[in-house]
Every structure is written in structure tokens, then in C-alpha cells.
């Protein structure tokens, strides 16, 4: 009976996962060894797609930019998320309202948020940030065509979009820290800073690991926000791996599905490598708790 219930409950999810995850993954791996266009069965060409992808300097630039974005955004989100969650934890009745307002950035479709965000830096559409910077420094920053200003803008948008979710998770973790632990730390004479570093953070390290995992996964898949934020991403070295895949496989009627699939497989391997320490840590923790 329990087996039947299990099968009934899990069956639909497994079917969806099979259809939407396993089949596309298998097809992607298969296509990565083929020259394939839409609607055609594809011809086996061995490792040609991989050698073409790996010899393209554009892939190297895309990997470097994506990793840089991931490291900086994840670190910023962890620090800011922890600080804001700590402040939020001390709030009273205002907390749900501020929480709700902050989550707007997260629930907005990424492309919509990115377009609005880009207008802050675009003089054609107001460019509020430009206006302030020009008033203060007299400088006109080329946010869309200079590499580093553009990177800063993309990073700022990614943090703005992902921070609310991370902050919410950390806040949940902070709510779960036993009061007795904090009181014991105070009685033992620990300063506020030491309480955070030696009591609270170790207690919620599981949550922090989870936030890292989710953030890394999200940032490694950066794609649609670059379309309004970095219109000439490739030319200034700010193209993400996923944008490169889209450009190769789909954009402007391109039909290099084999090459696009090979880049995708390489991207999946990279994501697994980046996530390995976190997945291992989470599994260890789960085992210990069991």
C-alpha cells in the first residue's frame, strides 16, 4: 500500500522530470556529437563541436566573465543578505511590509526588471544614475560600451534581483537560532561581532551553504538580463556562457544546434564543478543529522 501511494505521489513528478530534464539532457549530449539543424536527424561528427567550441576565444571570454560575475555576486549577496537579514530580524511590525517591498525585485520577470534597471543608466530614458554622477563628479560614464562600468551595472542588477530571496532564506535561518545560544554568548562576554562570527554564522551555515548553492546556480545561468543591459556583450567581454549558447544555437535564425549543445555540455560540467563543494557539504550535513 505504501509503495502504491509512493508511486502515485511520485509518478507525476518523475514523469515531468523525465520529460523536461532527462530527455533534453540526453538529447543535448547526443547532439553535441552531431552536425544537426532543426528538423534533421543529425550526422555524427565525433568531437568536432567540442574542438570548435574550445578553440573559440569567445568561449574563454564568456567563461571568465561568467565566473567573475558568479564569484563577486555570490560574495556580495552573502554579505549583504546577512547584514540586511540581521537588521530585518530586529524590526517589529514593519518587517512584513519591507519584506514584501523587497521581494518585488525578485518576482519581477528578469527581463522586465533588467530593462527598467538599464533605464537608470541610459540618458535616452532619464538616466537617473547618470544624472546624479554627473552632478557630483562632472563625469559621463559609458555604462553600455565600456567593459568595467558595464560589468558593475550587470553585477548591481544581478544582486538587486537575487538579494531578496537570499535575504529571506538567511532571515529564516536567523529565526531558527536558539535564544539560549545568544544569551550564553552574552553571559560569556562575547562581543556582537564575535557572537555573529562564532555563534550565529556557524549555527546557520547550512542555510548559508544553500544560499550559496542557489545563487551560484542562478548566476552561472545569467542570460536574459544581458540583452538590455549589455547590448554589445561579446565586443566588450561581458557575454555570459548562456548568452553565447543562445547566440550560437538560435539567434537570427542560426541553426548550429550541435555546436550549441557542445557548449551547453561544457557549461553543465562547469556548473557541476562549481557546485561540487556545496553539494558535498549539504549531503554531509544531511547525513550527520540523520
Amino acid at each position: 500500500m505504501r509503495r502504491r501511494e509512493f508511486a502515485l505521489l511520485m509518478g507525476p513528478s518523475l514523469l515531468v522530470m523525465l520529460g523536461l530534464l532527462v530527455v533534453p539532457l540526453v538529447r543535448t549530449i547526443q547532439w553535441s556529437f552531431q552536425k544537426v539543424e532543426y528538423g534533421s536527424p543529425g550526422d555524427f561528427i565525433g568531437l568536432s563541436n567540442y574542438s570548435q567550441a574550445l578553440s573559440d576565444p569567445r568561449l574563454g571570454r564568456a567563461v571568465l566573465f561568467t565566473l567573475l560575475l558568479t564569484v563577486i555576486v555570490t560574495a556580495t549577496i552573502l554579505v549583504l543578505g546577512y547584514l540586511i537579514a540581521t537588521g530585518m530580524n530586529g524590526l517589529g511590525k514593519l518587517r512584513p511590509y519591507i519584506l514584501g517591498a523587497m521581494l518585488v525585485a525578485y518576482v519581477l520577470p528578469n527581463i522586465v526588471g533588467a530593462v527598467s534597471f538599464s533605464w537608470l543608466f541610459d540618458q535616452n530614458f532619464g538616466g537617473a544614475v547618470n544624472y546624479v554622477i554627473q552632478a557630483l563628479t562632472g563625469q559621463n560614464i559609458l555604462w553600455f560600451t565600456e567593459t568595467w562600468p558595464n560589468r558593475i551595472m550587470v553585477m548591481a542588477h544581478t544582486v538587486w534581483h537575487l538579494l531578496p530571496f537570499s535575504m529571506l532564506m538567511i532571515l529564516a535561518g536567523l529565526q531558527g537560532v536558539p535564544k539560549e545560544l545568544r544569551e550564553a554568548a552574552i553571559i560569556d562576554g562575547a562581543s556582537g561581532r564575535k557572537t555573529h562570527f562564532y555563534v550565529i554564522i556557524p549555527t546557520i551555515r547550512g542555510i548559508l551553504g544553500f544560499v550559496c548553492l542557489i545563487t551560484i546556480m542562478d548566476v552561472l545561468r545569467t542570460f536574459d538580463n544581458l540583452i538590455p543591459l549589455s547590448p554589445q556583450a561579446d565586443a566588450i567581454g561581458n557575454e555570459s556562457i548562456m548568452l553565447y549558447v543562445f547566440d550560437t544555437a538560435f539567434r537570427d535564425g542560426s541553426a548550429q544546434l550541435g555546436l550549441g549543445s557542445a557548449i551547453n555540455v561544457l557549461a553543465i560540467l562547469l556548473i557541476l564543478v562549481c557546485l561540487f563543494p556545496f553539494i558535498r557539504g549539504l549531503l554531509k550535513e544531511a547525513k550527520a543529522k540523520a
Binding site: 518587517r95 512584513p96 519584506l99 514584501g100 517591498a101 521581494l103 518576482v107 529564516a172 529565526q175
Partner: peptide, 17 residues
């Protein structure tokens, strides 16, 4: 308390969404 706040936050989220 957290659950209560979370519910309120989720309600606000639902309205925005």
C-alpha cells in the same frame, strides 16, 4: 512569528505577482 511574517510577506508577494 517568522511564519506569520512569512505569510504576510507571501501575501504581499502574491499581490505584486
Amino acid at each position: 512569528r517568522f511564519h506569520k511574517h512569512l505569510r504576510t510577506g507571501a501575501a504581499a508577494l502574491a499581490v505584486v505577482a
